[in-house]
Every structure is written in structure tokens, then in C-alpha cells.
């Protein structure tokens, strides 16, 4: 899997919220097409880590490169990178004042400068892909949580990103709806897109991930293939965490 140039590269990245040292000396490189699951207790910095990749959070020290471009204060570079990076949020964050279709066409029309007709067409293809095409004319709040999250995935895919970031995509969902979202994510993973996913869905991690990363207190504690990670965790901290989340 590991090819010459990593698509994402963290080198000694540090970040603070005020006095709180949230990311500590992160070193991580992600290969093209790699699928990574990040887990860890709340407050361990896993969301912050992936939010640094599209600069929703700024790191203060170290070097972070995405698709060969270093993330700095250069707004144009950041906007260019954001076009390559799709993101799916825990709270969906669909635009409630726009229809499902308009949610999907907003960025292609305004960022991608694609004519409306073509943007509509592409959006419908994405909606078919997440199996929700019949809801195109509805408003997000008229949909169930699972449907909203699938729309959010389709929206992130509309700019054909190279990287997809998932920030606890199933944590706000009713148990009955988790599967429909995971199914879409598994299908996406099988198509070879680079994926970083913060989640506690360990079944998903086992079946899809190339690598599982465990974070605690702003550091990467352990990373390994799913088989090794779950079957033979190296550190005491990981074993403790796994025993808690796999117990139920």
C-alpha cells in the first residue's frame, strides 16, 4: 500500500487550545488510497487531528503537508486543499435553508464554477450513489438522521475529493440508522479513496481499515493493522481502552 509520496504528512505537529496541549508531536503519514480509522477516548485530540488536515483548526508547530502543499496562512492554498478534501461531521451540518439538491450543488457551482445543469446532474449521481435520489427536492430537516448523514457524504463527494475525512459520522445517529451510513462508507472505501475516519465502530475498522490508530492525551499511542491492533494490542493503555469499548 505504502507508495513513494504520502498524500498527508504530519511532522512534529503540535497544537494548543489556550494552555491545553491538544496535539503533542504528531508524526503521521498517510499513503494514497489508505483507509485509516482513528479511535481514542474523548478529548484525546482525534477530531482536532483530522480537522487540522483541512485547516478547520490551525496547528502552531511542525509541518503539515496535504497533497504536496504545506498548510500555512495562505488562504488561497487552504481553499485549494479544501477542494481536495471532503469532510463529514458528527452533526451532519447540512444547510437547512437549501434543499438536498442545492446542498450538493452549492460548492460545485460557486467553488468549482460548474454550470447549474451539470452540477445538478453530478449531484443526482452522488445521491444515487448514497441511495437517496428520491429525496432531492426535500429540505434536510425533513429527513431522518441516517438520510441526512448520507446526504452529507454525497455533498462532500460532489467536488470529487482525493481525501475524505469522517468525524464520528455515526455518533449522533439512532442505532437503527447506523448501518445505512456505514454501508455507504464501506462502499466508498472499496472504491480506493483515501479515508480518515474518527469512529468507535470497531466492526467497520476491522472490515475496512488498512490501519487503526489509537490516540490518547494528544498523542498517537499505537497504530497497527486491524488484525494486530485488536488481536495483539501492544500498550496497556490500548488494552484498557479496547476492553471498555468492546465490552458492550
Amino acid at each position: 500500500m505504502q507508495t513513494a509520496t504520502p498524500i498527508i504528512e504530519f511532522a512534529h505537529v503540535n497544537k494548543w487550545y489556550g494552555q491545553f496541549h491538544v496535539l503533542r508531536d504528531i508524526d503521521l503519514s498517510v499513503a494514497r488510497g489508505e483507509r485509516i480509522v482513528i479511535c481514542g477516548p474523548s478529548g484525546s485530540g482525534k477530531s482536532t487531528l483530522i480537522r487540522c488536515i483541512n485547516r478547520l483548526e490551525e496547528h502552531q508547530e511542525g509541518v503539515l503537508r496535504v497533497d504536496g502543499v504545506e498548510l500555512t496562512d495562505d488562504l488561497k492554498a487552504i481553499e485549494a486543499i479544501r477542494r481536495q478534501v471532503g469532510m463529514v461531521f458528527q452533526q451532519f451540518n447540512l444547510f437547512p435553508h437549501l434543499t438536498v439538491l442545492e446542498n450538493l450543488t452549492l460548492a460545485p457551482m460557486w467553488v468549482g464554477r460548474i454550470p447549474k445543469r451539470e452540477a445538478d446532474e453530478r449531484a443526482m449521481q452522488q445521491l444515487v450513489r448514497v441511495k437517496i435520489a428520491e429525496q432531492a427536492a426535500k429540505y434536510p430537516l425533513q429527513l431522518s438522521g441516517g438520510q441526512q448523514q448520507r446526504v452529507a457524504i454525497a455533498r462532500a463527494l460532489c467536488l470529487t475529493p482525493k481525501i475524505m475525512l469522517f468525524d464520528e459520522p455515526t455518533s449522533a445517529l439512532d442505532p437503527e440508522m447506523i448501518k445505512e451510513v456505514l454501508d455507504v462508507m464501506i462502499e466508498l472505501a472499496n472504491q480506493g479513496i483515501t479515508m480518515l475516519c474518527v469512529t468507535h465502530e470497531m466492526g467497520f475498522a476491522r472490515s475496512v481499515a488498512d490501519r487503526v490508530i489509537f490516540m490518547d492525551q494528544g498523542q498517537i499511542v499505537e497504530q497497527n493493522t486491524p488484525a494486530e491492533f485488536f488481536g495483539n494490542p501492544k500498550s496497556e493503555r490500548t488494552r484498557d481502552f479496547l476492553s471498555k469499548i468492546l465490552a458492550h
Partner: peptide, 23 residues
């Protein structure tokens, strides 16, 4: 307005003024 709305727009690559105007 929830913070997530701006973040969603930014993550799609919309500029400040596009985010402000459209979202």
C-alpha cells in the same frame, strides 16, 4: 448560527464571502 454551518461551508472550499452570502 451553529458553528458547524460555517465549518461545513469552509470544508467545501467556499471563501469567506461565499460562505457569508450563501450560508
Amino acid at each position: 448560527l451553529p458553528r458547524g454551518q460555517v465549518e461545513a461551508a469552509q470544508s467545501l472550499g467556499l471563501s469567506y464571502w461565499q460562505t457569508t452570502r450563501k450560508v
